[in-house]
Design a binder for these strands. Structure first.
Length: 423
RNA sequence: GUGGCCGUAGCUCAAUUAGGUUAGAGCACCUGGUUGUGGUCCAGGGGGUUGGGGGUUCAAAUCCCCUCGGUCACCCCA
């Protein structure tokens, strides 16, 4: 029996798992603060949903999907992203949902690539979508939320880059313009870029090998060739970001790998992670997606935030990871009768809302004290022969070792009103 | 998916360079240190099919092959 988890997956244990939980909880708070509603979509979908949405030639579809046949010979795929699912769910429930629909989700995504730090086969995302409005303020709101969330986690060294990649009106013309510009120098492009020239020429611009070559640098930029509405939209988004006081850089080379994106594209990049895993959040507008899925034209904009990478970035920036407060009280009991009393006390403490626990079996007091310490308890309540005989309970504050003996009936009160605690 | 580096106790590593007695250490863990006190200190203890499989050899942690896993870069993305 192999005990290690499958390749590209990992067990999340405390305290790291609790740090992840804190990221989830924070996501709920921020999303609700911005008026987003929580939704869940299936962990797996019909393969066609993703292949149509992302475009069959995209890397995600062509080589990274966890696709399998179920017992009814249906081709299903573990979700590699969730935007397509949200749009699908919106289209099938649109008549019951408010317009615009502002939804957010949280959970695992699956992509089958070569694992390395910051890119595992299962990874967790916090994502939001605004469906049904094309207004630039929606783009700004989505960016503002991701900015607020990241800064809320203590990340100061992430930078926002934005671009517009046009729409069905202007991108085809630009694309041809770019191809015409690069074609004469085709032989000077790397092997990858010669492929890209046909499949996704915009990618040539940010190629690590060719991106610095003079004729590539001299290539026309999409932001200079936007159609009127796209240019106006981009200008409005930038004005909105300025108005909201959100710092950003315009990177005319920023593109998207998934076909459904239009107009606004943005990323948050961490300055403390290596380049291969530095993108902590990616998003943009996808006005063409609903139609690709067979629905009516429906604009949308959103982001997906990689929580595992956020955690790495927090560690990289030296942010103290949120850890849950330990127990308020660990109840130590010696003797059978005392253990019965301890059970009662634990129940009372819990009823009063104070996290508390006790040993499950008879153990030496020393061992129980150690358990209290390891449970990160603030106080220990000791019930032994003396306490039973006198009807009292000994309370000990672990941080400084100060002890105090109180009537048994007052213990919960003492542990609740900590300000009464004087040496 | 392509290429490089790596894989010894829960963790960090030693022993691998020229194969050679029961594979070591620190930290962690457990138990004690006169019978009611954690975190410090002292002593003792448990824990390893050297990732797995095959091969070469009298002998393999050490050499060869395969495989699994990690890591870094690329592709791409969160």
């Amino acid at each position: 029996m192999e005990l290690a988890p499958p390749r590209g997956t990992a067990d999340l244990l405390p305290p790291r798992a609790e740090a992840m939980l804190a990221l989830y909880e924070s996501a709920h708070r921020w999303a609700r603060l911005f008026g987003f509603r929580y939704l869940e979509t299936p962990m797996f979908e019909h393969t066609e949903l993703f292949s149509r949405a992302a475009g069959a030639t995209s890397d995600v579809v062509s080589k990274e999907m966890y696709t399998f046949l179920d017992k009814g010979d249906r081709s299903l795929t573990l979700r590699p992203e969730t935007t397509a699912s949200v749009v699908r769910a919106y289209l099938t429930n649109a008549h019951d949902l408010p317009l615009p629909f502002k939804g957010y989700y949280l959970g695992s995504q699956f992509r089958h690539g070569r694992p390395q730090a910051g890119r595992t086969r299962e990874f967790r995302q916090f994502g939001v979508e605004i469906i049904g409005v094309g207004a630039p303020d929606a783009d700004v709101e989505v960016i503002a939320l991701s900015d607020a969330y990241l800064r809320g986690q203590g990340l100061l060294r992430t930078t926002l880059v934005v671009n517009s990649i046009g729409d069905a009106e202007c991108r085809p013309a630009y694309r041809q313009l770019l191809i015409d510009h690069l074609e004469p120098d085709r032989d000077d492009l790397c092997d990858d870029c010669q492929q890209r020239l046909r499949s996704n020429p915009l990618r040539v611009l940010d190629c690590k090998v060719d991106g610095k070559k003079a004729f590539v640098l001299a290539a026309p930029m999409i932001s200079d060739h936007l159609c009127g509405p796209c240019a106006a939209h981009f200008a409005a988004v930038r004005a909105g970001l300025d108005g909201a006081g959100i710092d950003y850089q315009h990177d005319p080379r920023l593109v998207r790998g998934l076909d459904y994106y239009t107009r606004t594209a943005f990323e948050f990049v961490s300055g403390v992670l290596s380049e291969a895993q530095a993108t902590v959040c990616g998003g943009g507008r996808y006005d063409g997606l609903a139609e690709v899925l067979g629905g009516p034209p429906t604009p949308g904009v959103g982001f997906a935030l990689g929580l595992d990478r956020v955690l790495l970035a927090m560690e990289g920036e030296g942010v103290e990871l949120p850890s849950p407060r330990g127990l308020r009280c660990f109840v130590v009991a010696v003797g059978e009768q005392a253990r019965a009393a301890a059970k009662t006390l634990v129940a009372e403490l819990r009823a009063a809302g104070l996290p508390s626990a006790a040993a499950f079996e008879e153990r030496p007091m020393k061992a129980q004290m150690k358990m209290a310490d390891r449970a990160d308890a603030a106080f220990v309540a000791i019930i032994g022969e003396r306490e039973l005989a006198e009807g009292v309970i000994t309370l000990k504050r672990l941080v400084d070792g100060i002890q105090k003996t109180v009537p048994a009936g007052d213990a919960v009160g003492w542990l609740t009103r900590l300000d009464d605690w004087t040496p």
